[in-house]
């Protein structure tokens, strides 16, 4: 059964490879137009050359004028409650747990656990790579998945880690169905913050549900509590490897309004993922 699945995947990828190289050419083209778009973003830059400090204010103001309406947030009150709940859980429960866990278990085994979970989510990345037309990334993911699942002991060891440079795709691999929806031109709808899950939006939440269908964990013979425990363990393990130089902390430590800072960063980050 698994053999047939893997062979099928291989065949599909081989068939798609031809299309992939065609895409590589076209994505070069789109990168070029991207540059032009970014350049035209800087409108009026030349006009303010001889102006005094405040005269080129408009020029700067234009550049950031979209900040005020990045995303609709009609449920702000509700979102704020869950945001601060999550923040308290992060500092009060998950971070201490990750610290203790990091103290007890050396980094290597924790990296194996992370690799295992990453490897297991291969279907999510593969399907979304295909849907987004990132065939080179789909090919890379498939190669990695096969190599790591077989020689890498079910994905615990990332045997391809040092080889990555050799097959780096044109664009980063897909990260989920929310991104695919964004690529299809669908907006966020409204901003949402879920308890435990963190910042999201209608679009990204739909993406999460779709991704769950491709997550092997969903099909495991698990009770709801077991499922939650595994998810929590996965996240604590991940956090234990990111205790230093952690983006969430960097962002919120310097913020005077954590909620606004995270909302802005989340929407900008997703926009960047959709663009790539």
């Amino acid at each position: 059964m698994i053999h047939r699945f893997v062979t099928g995947l291989l065949l599909a990828t081989l068939l798609l490879l031809g299309a992939g190289s065609a895409l590589a050419a076209s994505s070069d083209g789109s990168d070029g137009s991207n540059q032009v778009a970014q350049l035209s973003d800087m409108r009026g830059a030349g006009a303010a050359v001889d102006a005094a400090n405040t005269d080129d204010f408009d020029d700067f103001d234009d550049e950031y004028s979209d900040t005020a309406h990045l995303v609709a947030d009609p449920l702000k009150g509700w979102n704020t409650v869950w945001f601060y709940f999550n923040d308290a859980m992060y500092h009060g429960v998950f971070k201490p747990a990750a610290k203790g866990y990091a103290w007890a278990i050396p980094a290597k085994p924790r990296q194996w656990v992370r690799n295992f979970f990453t490897n297991m989510l291969f279907p999510v990345r593969f399907v979304n790579d295909i849907l987004q037309g990132k065939f080179d990334a789909a090919y890379m993911e498939t190669s990695k998945f096969i190599a790591n699942t077989s020689w890498g002991l079910l994905g615990f060891v990332d045997v391809t880690a040092d080889m990555k440079r050799n097959w780096e795709p044109e664009r980063p691999t897909a990260d989920g169905f929310g991104q695919t929806l964004g690529k299809a031109g669908i907006g966020h709808g409204i901003y949402l913050v879920w308890p435990f899950l963190g910042p999201s939006s209608i679009r990204e939440s739909v993406g999460w549900v779709a991704d769950a269908y491709l997550d092997p964990l969903t099909y495991g013979d698990l009770s709801f509590i077991e499922f939650l425990a595994i998810r929590a363990y996965k996240n604590v393990n991940q956090l234990s490897l990111e205790l230093k130089g952690n983006e969430y902390e960097t962002l919120t430590e310097g913020a005077i309004d954590k909620y606004a800072a995270v909302r802005n960063a989340y929407i900008r980050f997703r926009a960047k993922k959709v663009k790539e």
């Binding site: 859980m89 980094a107 990296q111 996240n235 956090l239 990111e242 205790l243 980050f269």
Partner: peptide
């Protein structure tokens, strides 16, 4: 008080989703 060495692994790009 709790000196511990941490691996040099950097935070993922989804730091804000970690909770």
């Amino acid at each position: 008080s709790g000196a511990q060495t941490e691996s040099g692994t950097q935070a993922g790009s989804q730091g804000e989703q970690k909770q």
